[in-house]
Simulated scan of single mutants.
Amino acid sequence: MVRASVKDCPVPFPNIDPIAFAIGPIAIRWYALAYLVGTLLGAAYGYRMLSKQHLWHRGHPPFPAKDIWDFAFWTMLAIVIGGRLGYVLFYNLPYYLQNPIEIINTLDGGMSFHGGMLGLALAAILFSRSKGGNWLSSLDLIASVATIGIFLGRIANFINGELYGAPASVAWAVIFPTDPMQVPRHPSQLYEAALEGLLLFLAIRIATHVFYALRKPGLVAGIFAIGYSLARILVEFVRLPDAHIGYLYGGWLTQGQVLSLPILLGGIILVAYAATRRENPLRP
């Protein structure tokens, strides 16, 4: 195991206060701002995409661009509720069964991306159906904008000094002030921000605006699911698992990797389905 003092660390941790600002007794954290700003930027980007009808299957987006702000409210609720319930179910169910009141206590930071993504998918399907739109296209819309929130969320994780990686000797290793061992570690939050956020956004942007992938409903959602799952599985090899869960199946898999596998499979199925159908039956 690599051990070093703070002064030996190649990259000093930018000791940013997790609280962005406070108004009296109310403290606004960077993590909360990441959710809010990610949703607003995603909605603004989604508005532009919905306005360009030529991008979509038969020229029909899943719902009118003017409805994006109503949809943004749905997504905020879906992210919070889905993310929290996902954490309860996937990461610490025995504890919450014994302490059910703690389920609504989000101050402990327990949120699951996989749960939030399931919540988003459900919200997108229900909202588009209420508007008479193609629900597969609504999943494509979510896939096109979700990387913005992922990028900001992982940056906020880094600022909080949470979800860091395993001990490392790479030149960019960081000693996190929240680490009780105080050893250089992989900044796995930044790896995820780069792969699941920035790189995946660029790949999907090329797919939607160069290859017109939105004309095949479900294709962009499949690309997102594959790209996110592969990036998450890869980064999990250098990211520490949750302490109360540890490594699974003989010490070589993490819960994050296990949860990413069905999403990877679902993405492959979506891509195969969308790419092999000339006319999608799930039309508006």
Rank of each mutant, 00 (worst) to 15 (best):
137 S>L: 09
137 S>D: 09
139 L>K: 08
143 A>D: 09
143 A>P: 05
146 A>L: 07
146 A>G: 08
149 G>W: 04
149 G>F: 02
149 G>M: 10
151 F>D: 04
152 L>K: 07
152 L>F: 13
153 G>A: 13
153 G>L: 14
154 R>T: 10
154 R>A: 07
156 A>G: 07
157 N>Q: 14
158 F>C: 05
159 I>Q: 06
160 N>C: 11
161 G>M: 14
162 E>M: 03
162 E>H: 02
164 Y>K: 07
169 S>C: 00
170 V>H: 13
171 A>M: 14
175 I>E: 02
175 I>N: 02
176 F>L: 08
178 T>E: 11
179 D>H: 01
180 P>A: 13
181 M>G: 00
182 Q>V: 07
183 V>E: 07
185 R>A: 00
187 P>C: 02
188 S>Y: 12
190 L>H: 02
191 Y>Q: 01
193 A>V: 08
194 A>F: 11
196 E>Q: 10
196 E>M: 10
198 L>I: 12
198 L>G: 10
198 L>C: 08
200 L>D: 06
201 F>V: 10
201 F>H: 11
204 I>V: 14
205 R>I: 09
206 I>P: 00
206 I>V: 08
207 A>N: 04
210 V>R: 15
211 F>H: 14
216 K>Y: 13
216 K>R: 15
218 G>K: 15
218 G>H: 14
219 L>N: 10
219 L>C: 12
222 G>I: 04
222 G>S: 08
225 A>F: 08
227 G>L: 10
230 L>V: 15
231 A>M: 03
232 R>P: 05
232 R>C: 09
233 I>N: 13
233 I>K: 13
234 L>C: 10
235 V>Y: 10
236 E>N: 07
236 E>D: 13
239 R>M: 08
239 R>V: 06
240 L>Q: 07
242 D>F: 15
242 D>N: 15
247 Y>I: 05
247 Y>F: 13
247 Y>N: 06
248 L>G: 02
249 Y>T: 15
251 G>W: 15
251 G>T: 04
252 W>Y: 12
252 W>F: 14
255 Q>S: 15
259 L>A: 01
260 S>I: 01
267 G>R: 05
267 G>M: 05
268 I>Y: 02
270 L>P: 04
271 V>T: 12
273 Y>A: 00
274 A>S: 11
